[in-house]
């Protein structure tokens, strides 16, 4: 028997989308607050690198980054996470933002070390770019757009 459960399902708000850009790829992340959008853009970035559902958030790492302004802060924050990924082979799928000002971010990133067989690496991100970077309060939530050099 087929049950119609649609009434009971609360839709999970979309956290991020990918969009294409010439040679590269971009992510647009959403959030009710700027903090949530900052957390979601990082999760989106790791979803570019690997299948996020295969990451078990069993280890955490403290992240603290500064920037000259909000745009730089965002780029520096994502670059920091990428650095931990490329040197410590950490993959993250959950981020808690502890503090966010226009020039400082403190966060806790949860994930685990890359394990061959469990995780498949889909692509390499060379750098996080400033091109068409946007952090915006749309009136019905926050949106962050970032393009990655892949």
């Amino acid at each position: 028997m087929v049950m119609d459960n649609t009434q009971d399902i609360t839709p999970i708000p979309k956290r991020f989308d990918f969009f294409e850009h010439t040679a590269d790829i971009g992510i647009i992340a959403y959030g009710n607050t700027m903090e949530e959008a900052f957390a979601n853009i990082a999760c989106g970035m790791f979803a570019l690198l690997t299948e996020p559902d295969n990451i078990t958030p069993k280890k955490s790492m403290d992240i603290e980054v500064t920037g000259y302004n909000q745009d730089e802060l965002l780029v520096n924050y994502l670059s920091e996470l990428l650095y931990h990924c490329s040197t410590k082979e950490m993959l993250f799928n959950k981020i808690t933002i502890l503090e966010l000002t226009p020039t400082l971010i403190k966060a806790k990133a949860y994930g685990e070390k890359y394990t061959s067989g469990k995780h498949q690496l889909l692509q390499e991100i060379k750098t996080v770019t400033y091109h068409q970077l946007k952090i915006e309060d749309t009136g019905c939530g926050w949106e962050i757009r970032v393009i990655f050099d892949v």
């Binding site: 990918f18 969009f19 294409e20 850009h21 010439t22 040679a23 590269d24 790829i25 692509q123 892949v150």
Partner: peptide, 8 residues
């Protein structure tokens, strides 16, 4: 020279 995005 690339003509198509990677996604495309």
């Amino acid at each position: 020279g690339r003509i198509m995005s990677r996604t495309r």
